[in-house]
């Protein structure tokens, strides 16, 4: 019996050794190594001032060793990105930007790490309070990655940037330009994620300009064109808030929801939407009754 037990142990150890060896420089060991280094980096980020310089050096060396050991891994661009982020944590913004620029130059625009690096460059200029270069980098993102999530946000981010800087006129111009930009994207990329995001951002621009009716109609378009049940709840909330609270208009949301139910008679959201319509009608009636009551009292 002892011999058989030893045989079991030998088989288990052999299988483990063989399978480990076959994938020794594969993607999984790279992920494991990266995870371990990132855990060390997290301890630095938790309290950057408390971390001794030796820890920074150790983590930096680990990332460099990772790049040498797994040169073909898909995680190498991330390792470069983390090297830049370590410099950011040390407030060496110039050094960080050099690393991020090398990522942008070395990797094709198809690789999302380039966009991530540009986003970090924006962050570094924000921390340095350098508005000129923040805007320059936003424009770079818009030019090089126009259809990405961040790229689409750039027009509205520029408007927000001007608002934060209290440049009211420039903010107005930026918002108007953003509205034109999103309308163009909606026409150019129908039935796509780009159109979906552009509609959302266009509605946000209208709300910033207090063009409530345009905002509600844009949300209505979004609801009808993209009836994914995961998003309908949030869009309905936005329509209700803007229509009822900001505009005092009860009929506009009802017409949008009735159009939705007619377009998608079997949609799973129709039942709750019908309840919303009833509630709005009730609210409208209460509102009318109260308005009438107030009018009568004022006439007295």
């Amino acid at each position: 019996m002892k011999k058989i037990i030893y045989a079991y142990i030998v088989i288990l150890i052999s299988v483990f050794a063989i399978l480990s060896f076959l994938d020794i420089n594969g993607e999984y060991p790279a992920e494991k190594a990266m995870w371990k280094i990132n855990q060390q980096f997290k301890t630095i980020i938790a309290d950057p001032k408390a971390a001794p310089p030796a820890t920074y050096k150790q983590v930096t060396d680990e990332y460099k060793r990772f790049i040498e050991r797994f040169p073909n891994s898909q995680l190498v661009p991330l390792a470069h990105l983390f090297l830049g982020r370590i410099s950011m944590v040390r407030e060496d913004y110039k050094g960080a930007r050099e690393k991020f620029e090398s990522i942008v130059n070395n990797y094709s625009k198809e690789n999302p790490v380039g966009l991530e690096a540009l986003s970090e460059i924006v962050r570094s200029y924000t921390l340095e309070k350098d508005p000129v270069n923040i805007l320059k980098t936003y424009h770079r993102i818009e030019q090089d990655y126009p259809l990405s999530g961040l790229g689409l946000h750039v027009p509205i981010l520029i408007a927000k940037f001007h608002m934060d800087q209290k440049n009211t006129e420039q903010a107005k111009v930026a918002l108007a330009s953003a509205i034109d930009y999103y309308r163009k994207m909606i026409n150019q990329y129908p039935k796509s994620l780009v159109e979906y995001n552009s509609l959302r951002l266009l509605a946000t621009c209208y709300m910033a300009k207090k063009r409530w009716s345009d905002a509600v109609n844009t949300f209505g378009d979004l609801l009808i064109k993209y009836p994914d049940p995961r998003n309908t709840g949030n869009i309905v909330k936005a329509i209700n808030t803007v229509s009822i609270k900001n505009m005092g208009n009860f009929d506009l949301p009802i017409s949008i929801y009735e159009k939705f139910i007619k377009t998608y008679p079997d949609h799973p959201f129709n039942e709750p939407l019908t309840e919303v319509i009833e509630k709005i009608k009730e609210l409208k009636k209460q509102n009318v009754d109260e308005a009438t009551k107030n009018e009568n009292e004022s006439q007295k």
Partner: peptide, 19 residues
Amino acid sequence: IFIQLLSLEILYFAPRYPL
């Protein structure tokens, strides 16, 4: 015990080449 450990081992290596 041997069979269960062996199957656990195989599943442990499931995300890795060649399994």
